[in-house]
Design a protein around this nucleic acid. Sequence first.
DNA 1: GTCTATAGTTGGATAGAC
DNA 2: GTCTATCCAACTATAGAC
Lengths: 222, 222
Amino acid sequence: MNRLPVAERRGQLVEAALHVATRDGIDAATVRAVAAEAGVSLGVVHYCFQDKDELLRAMAHAITSTNAPPDLDEIPDGLPVETVLELAMAGLWQTITNNRGLQLLSYELTCSSLRHEELSQVGIEQYRGQWASAEESLTAIAAKLRIRWTVPIATLARIVIAAVDGYSLAWLVDGDEQAAGDGLRTFARYAATLAEPLDGEHAPQDDPVEVPAQLDGLATSA
Amino acid sequence: MNRLPVAERRGQLVEAALHVATRDGIDAATVRAVAAEAGVSLGVVHYCFQDKDELLRAMAHAITSTNAPPDLDEIPDGLPVETVLELAMAGLWQTITNNRGLQLLSYELTCSSLRHEELSQVGIEQYRGQWASAEESLTAIAAKLRIRWTVPIATLARIVIAAVDGYSLAWLVDGDEQAAGDGLRTFARYAATLAEPLDGEHAPQDDPVEVPAQLDGLATSA
DNA sequence: GTCTATAGTTGGATAGAC
DNA sequence: GTCTATCCAACTATAGAC
């Protein structure tokens, strides 16, 4: 109804698109549905965005640029690496299970970006953001606990994201929150074996898992 | 053109749907496109299938029921668990990278099944098949190498599938075959630490990773 | 800036001739 | 069983009044 500056209107429309797509799927996020959700008429959307793809790209960007920086400060000091990783993973897992529709939407966006040239940047942006976020967290953890990772940080970040993605997908399908949570906890314990103390000697418990030689030359994809 | 028994025609149409969807994505697999691909007219498809969803379900079933049983026989005897797992994983990874479109389609199907009630069984079938296949392979490996897994087989299968899914998705987006292959190899080595010899004592190398207690009571989802 | 009206496509589904 | 013709719905996008 009211006349708003374009930028603001765009923001409203992106948010509306996000609502519709999260609730009903990416295919349901038609220009019409978004207009209805935002309470404006069809023409307004086309006034603010060149076409539907631009709207979807803006929506995708709104998701990928909202990278929740994990709260490491809430994790108390003095805990072993294993526990810290479990806690960090649990936090990440919480935000996923609390936003089922959004998680599903992000996979739908990934698939769409792989089929439509106009959205080709979306998938890459998604992973760049996730990898960077994981690297950031892992680096922060390493600094906080005075450890270092025995595999390249980019590789480790990739492993974490792969595990989370894999378990998330399975959870979306079978809804078994317990199985996914436990699996990720197991995974966190594995990741803990990839850490060693900064100041000399060996890891706390057993010998760390042998570092695969060929991982050292990995492309730092992010 | 020719008059064929319905069952046969259905098979042709399913194959045509598979071709179109693999090449151009699930959204491109319209009834019209499938009919064109099969070289029949629109009406024929609706004669063989009640509606589009039934066609898609048949297509999905054609994928999930084609579970390539891994060739464990090709793996020579006398190799350590670690190497056998790496080889098995490499084989699995090969079939994925050799069928990029199909892999992407399977994720598109998963997403679709999560949004459309009529396809709700598709996603479950996909995972049931994959988990069962992974369990089968892992059991066969255990028997062949005279080892046992220190976590429930269902849990282990779930871990494997999650890792493969996670890395596959990332690979679909960034195309970095090397990073994904190496990551999965690293993962195979981890999985090897979850094995212990059948006849007494400890694992070959170091102590096996501590078995997480809470994993013992896991639901055997498959 | 926002609205209504409409053009132009695409796709699911059916009817009826052959 | 197979085909053509057609209906109907939903969508993108634009034009033009307000």
